[in-house]
Simulated assay, not measured.
Amino acid sequence: MAAARQEPQPGVSNVSYTFGSGNTSVSGAAGHDVRQEVRVGGGPAVEPTKLEEARALLDQLRTALGEHSDDVKDPAQCDAAVTVIGEQLESDQPEQSKLKLFLTGLLSAIGGVTDVLGVAEKLRDAIQALFA
């Protein structure tokens, strides 16, 4: 990935590069007024149609969980996972690692309730497609 070199700060010995992902790297910086902007997870934006598909499946999952709340293995864990997954899907740049972690916990918390598990597995596949 190509980097764009920025001018060194006056009075400071440094080299600064900004990469296409938005991450900035400052190397060899020394001085009293060094500032560095760091962006975590500046990966590519997800495709809007795939994101909408994942959001629709999350709504279906909420409905299925509501209909089978007494049947799932751990309803509280399901609710917590769905909340975090929903927050991530509403974000401009959802975090793949966080989604993967909470989807794994969600699938475990559902247990063997096939009506809910089927929707959760479709959601997992849709979220994986966001980052493919």
Rank of each mutant, 00 (worst) to 15 (best):
Q9T: 14
G86S: 00
A120D: 05
T114G: 08
E121A: 06
A120R: 05
A64G: 03
N23Q: 14
A29N: 11
G28Y: 03
E53F: 05
I127Q: 08
G43D: 10
A81R: 14
T49Q: 13
L130N: 09
D115G: 03
P10K: 12
K98H: 08
D59N: 12
D115P: 08
D70P: 05
H68K: 10
A2M: 14
L58S: 04
A132C: 13
K73F: 13
G28A: 11
F102P: 00
F102T: 05
V40L: 13
S27V: 08
S97W: 02
L130D: 12
S13T: 12
G31C: 08
P44K: 09
G28D: 07
L99G: 03
E67V: 04
A56G: 11
A56E: 13
R39E: 07
V46P: 00
T63R: 15
I127F: 04
H68V: 03
V116L: 05
V26F: 09
E37N: 15
D92H: 08
L103H: 02
T24L: 05
V82C: 12
G66F: 02
R55I: 00
T49D: 13
P94L: 04
V34E: 01
G11Y: 01
Q6S: 08
G22E: 07
Q77R: 14
L99N: 02
N23R: 14
I85R: 01
K98M: 11
A54L: 03
R5H: 10
E53Q: 13
A109R: 07
H68I: 02
T63I: 13
H68D: 09
L61G: 00
G105M: 15
F102G: 00
Q36V: 03
A45V: 03
F131D: 08
Q88W: 00
Q36E: 04
E67A: 10
K98N: 11
R39V: 08
D59G: 07
V113F: 05
Q93M: 06
L58P: 04
E95C: 05
Y17L: 15
L61A: 01
A45S: 07
S21I: 06
A56C: 05
L58D: 03
M1N: 14
G118N: 06
A129H: 12
A64Y: 00
T24H: 06
P75T: 01
T83S: 12
V12Y: 05
M1Y: 12
V82Q: 09
E7G: 06
G31M: 09
E90V: 04
D92G: 13
S69Q: 10
Q93A: 05
G11I: 01
